[in-house]
């Protein structure tokens, strides 16, 4: 996998990957990282950070650090689960629309454009409101159901151009069935787009989970970053000076978002040679400075 190898040589990708892996490890080993239960009262309400409670306590006396590392599990699970669904739907529909063309394409394209002009968050809110207090699984399902359109659009347009290439044409000449062409000739050439779509969808899903939670549409009994935000906001954390309650999940979200975004930018750079500057610009500038040549 050249794409993968190139990514390992990219600084942005390395930093992003490090952040992501660290958060995943923290989520996996959450119970080992803290002695406190995330759902029990373990201290006095709204204690500032201290040796006993690294990130302080909530108004209910829960340990913020414990809730944060346990919450990472739910946030990541929703993110990756929904991200996977969004990507699969988007990729499959996009390839089919782009390769089949004709009526199939027109129908898929019409619905895609339609979903794209209905604002996503308001739609999510309405659905979530009717579902009631949505648990993580339900939230992931709703996200997968409503957010695939962007993926279809980019996958479709890329498929349209790949369809014209020689190897696809020759596979057609040989009479390969179309599902084989789509799966074996087209899909492998879409890897970077699928990757970008997947990571983007994960970011989107993590943030959407937090947003729905924050707006009071999540299940208050789960431990997730969104629910932490909701509880802190309800406890007026900022106005009573308990900033740790609110800012902890904030920074966690920002860090995860940053890590994933770095990865995404890196894939874009690697996959799109026009955007890549690489080492050549550096050595070019050096040579110009040394007077070895000019433009």
């Amino acid at each position: 996998m050249t794409l993968f190898k190139q990514l390992l040589g990219n600084k942005k990708a390395l930093v992003g990957l490090t952040i992501l892996v660290a958060i995943i490890l923290i989520a996996i080993f959450a119970p080992l990282l803290t002695e406190y239960s995330p759902t029990r009262r373990v201290g006095r309400p709204h204690q500032p950070p201290s040796w006993d409670h690294w990130l302080g306590t909530t108004r209910l006396g829960h340990d913020v650090f414990s809730r944060l590392v346990h919450g990472a599990r739910v946030s990541l699970a929703v993110g990756f689960g929904a991200g996977l669904m969004i990507t699969i739907v988007g990729t499959v529909l996009g390839i089919i629309a782009g390769y089949k063309g004709g009526v199939v394409d027109e129908v898929i394209n019409f619905f895609t454009n339609m979903v794209l002009v209905v604002p996503n968050l308001p739609l999510l809110l309405v659905i979530a409101a009717f579902v009631g207090q949505a648990g993580p699984v339900v939230i992931a399902l709703i996200l997968g159901f409503t957010s695939w359109a962007w993926g279809v659009r980019v996958t479709r347009s890329e498929t349209l151009s790949i369809r014209q290439r020689d190897y696809v044409k020759s596979a057609e000449m040989l009479g390969e069935p179309s599902w084989r062409i789509m799966a074996l000739e087209i899909f492998p050439n879409l890897i970077s787009i699928v990757g970008i779509n997947f990571i983007g969808s994960v970011i989107f899903a993590v943030i959407a989970e937090a947003t729905l939670g924050f707006l009071g549409l999540g299940d208050p009994n789960t431990v997730s970053w969104g629910i932490m935000l909701f509880n802190a906001q309800n406890a007026s954390a900022l106005s009573v000076g308990a900033w740790w309650d609110l800012l902890s999940p904030c920074f966690a979200l920002a860090l995860l978002g940053l890590g994933l975004a770095l990865l995404n930018f890196a894939i874009d750079e690697v996959a799109n040679p026009r955007l890549r500057t690489g080492g050549m610009l550096k050595s070019w500038s050096r040579m110009v400075l040394l007077g070895e040549g000019k433009l």
Binding site: M280, L281, V288, G293, K294, L295
Partner: peptide
């Protein structure tokens, strides 16, 4: 017309 852009380099001496 010196229209090149990096990474092209016209070497000194030309």
């Amino acid at each position: 017309s010196r229209l090149h852009r990096p990474p092209a380099l016209i070497r000194t001496g030309s």
